[in-house]
Every structure is written in structure tokens, then in C-alpha cells.
């Protein structure tokens, strides 16, 4: 199997928020964008929707039904103001975490 490319618990929320920061998107599209942009990450498709609904319940994103370019009805998700704030918080947290990990890896006694 090699390297496990599944997501670290909790980061999926941040990635969803980040993806939606650019523009509203439907569930399938969010999963595709995360995989495409990261190049390495694989999203558990089934658990994606539980996350989306939980984020909606938290009030960070909202959902609405709209038509896709192909004229198909789909549920779109969009970032709310609370979600924008939450994204900033989570991104900062992640950056400092990543920086810490990077410092440890760079440490050579």
C-alpha cells in the first residue's frame, strides 16, 4: 500500500472551507477539487457528506439547490461569514503545526 494518503482527522473540514472560499460548489465537485489541487490527497467520498452536513449545522457553510452547467439540479455549498473566520483560525493553526513538524524534520544534531 505504501504511503497512506487519506486525510488526517479534522483537516478535511479545513480543506472544504478553503475550497469553498473560492466559489460555491457541490459535494462531488469539492471532493474532485481537493484531490486535483493537492495531487496526493484522496477524499473518502462517503464521509464527505457527513462533514458537509455537520459544517452546515455549525453555521460555517450554507447549502442551496441550483443547476450545474449541464442543466442538472445539485446541492451547492457556500462559505458563510462565520465560515470565513473559522477558515482563518484553522489555517493559522495548521500553518503553525506544519511549521513545527518541519522544524523537527529539519533538526540535525
Amino acid at each position: 500500500m505504501g504511503t497512506d494518503n487519506s486525510l488526517i482527522r479534522g483537516t478535511l473540514d479545513m480543506l472544504i472551507l478553503k475550497t469553498l472560499a473560492a466559489e460555491p460548489m457541490h459535494g462531488w465537485g469539492i471532493g474532485e477539487l481537493i484531490q486535483e489541487r493537492s495531487g496526493v490527497l484522496r477524499v473518502q467520498q462517503g464521509s464527505l457528506y457527513a462533514s458537509l452536513h455537520r459544517l452546515t449545522r455549525e453555521g460555517w457553510i450554507r447549502s442551496y439547490w441550483a443547476e450545474t452547467e449541464n442543466g442538472r439540479r445539485a446541492r451547492y455549498y457556500a462559505l458563510t461569514r462565520a465560515g470565513t473566520k473559522q477558515l482563518t483560525v484553522e489555517a493559522e493553526h495548521w500553518q503553525s503545526l506544519a511549521a513545527g513538524v518541519a522544524r523537527i524534520l529539519a533538526f540535525n544534531p
Binding site: G46, Y49, H53, R54, R57
Partner: peptide, 18 residues
């Protein structure tokens, strides 16, 4: 198959409704 079958995703989504 990729989606995780017909039961589990549905159950997970429902659980997230609180």
C-alpha cells in the same frame, strides 16, 4: 464502490444531523 456502498454514507450523514 468508491462511494462506500449504499448504507454507510447515508448513516454517517444522518448521524451528522444531531
Amino acid at each position: 464502490r468508491r462511494f462506500g456502498g449504499p448504507v454507510r454514507p447515508r448513516q454517517m450523514a444522518r448521524d451528522s444531523w444531531g
